[in-house]
Design a protein around this nucleic acid. Sequence first.
DNA 1: CGAACATTTGAGATGGTTCAAGGGTTGTGG
DNA 2: CCACAACCCTTGAACCATCTCAAATGTTCG
Lengths: 241, 241
Amino acid sequence: MQAQHPITTATAAPMTRAHHAAAQIAKAATAPTATDALDLLDQLGTAMRVGENGEIYAEGDPALYCYRVVSGLVRTVTLMEDGRRQISEFLMPGDLLGFDALDSHDNAAQAVGTVQLRRFPRPAVEALSEGNPAVARRLRQATAAKLREAHQQILLLGRKTASERIASFLLVMADRAGADTNGRIALPTRADMADHLGLTLETVSRTLNELHRAGMIKLARAMVEISDRPALAALALETRH
Amino acid sequence: MQAQHPITTATAAPMTRAHHAAAQIAKAATAPTATDALDLLDQLGTAMRVGENGEIYAEGDPALYCYRVVSGLVRTVTLMEDGRRQISEFLMPGDLLGFDALDSHDNAAQAVGTVQLRRFPRPAVEALSEGNPAVARRLRQATAAKLREAHQQILLLGRKTASERIASFLLVMADRAGADTNGRIALPTRADMADHLGLTLETVSRTLNELHRAGMIKLARAMVEISDRPALAALALETRH
DNA sequence: CGAACATTTGAGATGGTTCAAGGGTTGTGG
DNA sequence: CCACAACCCTTGAACCATCTCAAATGTTCG
């Protein structure tokens, strides 16, 4: 039902940091910082780079680490035995990854292009959140926010037409990625979009070009620019916003 | 694209309990109970009953309360302006509801049949989890578990065929609801199933009857019995299990 | 009994898929 | 720096899984 993509090997730098710092930090920061409670995490993390199409973790892997995206785009992938593929979400710089795993990851995470990450050992994160209610709350909120996004995606997949899906997707990408200075936003491949939106890459291509002909977007390979946001929003049928 | 259902009014018993107990409980229970940390919640809750098709909360409502299902079946509904409807999930006895809201509910919750609930004021829950890391952790895990289910649903909606969807749904219901003593499980209406599975009620009806003819299930109105679980599981293409 | 509602079934319409081919782009090695 | 290979994207045409529209048949309950 869907074509598949060979996965080139990851270029992952190994890490060398300890987790024992976590408990200390948790106690030190009795009064949560005025900024973001999750800033505390940073000291526990290690920088890491993954090459294009590299795997950050596989489905079913024990959840030893979690990550924050520093730069680049990450996709979260579920694969069926016969090769059908579903991308649950795309993650952008600043997004957290793998924090909501229970003991194993329920889907794979892969770098769309080259990606820079900060990696945190989960035991350290757990220890930190155990000792610091503000961190615990922020983590729960982060997971709740993902759940909310998942519900949006469920609505999209269950009830929207192809052009509504594309319009919704473009708006989400524009809002989250923050268009570059020219209002242009980088897109993943048609195949990646298709597997995210429950369509085929041909339908994605056709629909994108229809929106272009309709004057709602400008199209250039892997880049789009939204020229008529109200029209797109009307198509996407965004309830909220 | 989809027919709509009028909502009969809820029969909700008002509540009378205070939240101030929360902080005390949190402190008292420094050593978390051997059983379930969430048992601590019970004392903060009030019993409540909602009639068939009654609304527990509406989409966009400020999230003042959260709930645990005591008996009956609850559906979580997102509505589009033109009437298209998506049911994100069905909740069974023991399931938590509204705990993962941020400050407002991102979808409505309705009673499928008559439902008994236990209702908790969110400030009390927050206070409890603030003071009790075990509770905080359980709540985060509960939200993470919902996210995992949402990802399954995204795969189902994005990539499965009608019969795969039905088969998957029946297995989930059987596992979660726990079939009655005769292995029979209660189903919501065809329309509710359709709006959960991204199909029309006609397709649900036809597919259910096909599975019946194929000898995989026994069918009796709002009841099914799974007669050939392996065959159903093969159809559902469950990766895990 | 009768009204409201849930389910089934049929027949025709269709949005999106599938299969197929051609054109663009990018990077790489000669 | 050109030429080829590997992709990606586009476009066309036929097909089909599911939807839509329509009607008949339960079923439930006041």
